[in-house]
Amino acid sequence: MNPTLYLLLSLLLFGLGAAGVVLRRNTLFMLLNLELMMNAVGLALVAASLAGLLEGQLIVLMVLAVAAAEVAIGIGILVSMVRLKDSPLVDLWNREEP
């Protein structure tokens, strides 16, 4: 397997995820895209382990745990947002101009 191919795919996925986070206004989809970005990073690190670095795989494990923590908190925030404003749109949380 060629590490460059993995890096390229990881870059594409990361770009798509980043575009999703900045384009979408629905918090749920922003979270989904964030998860995708984390996975893209994981893919890049596994590509590093293809090139002979065991540390790549270890960092992926750590990222995995961090992502799990992030999801738990993210969904917690999402639930609170929907409870307060009855909608997951982030635009509703803009500060009103004085």
Binding site: L9, L12, L13, L16, G17, A19, G20, L23, R24, F29, L32, N33, L36
Partner: peptide, 9 residues
């Protein structure tokens, strides 16, 4: 994976 990413986007 790319189809999935596009779908999420």
């Amino acid at each position: 994976a790319l189809i999935g990413a596009l779908g999420v986007l």
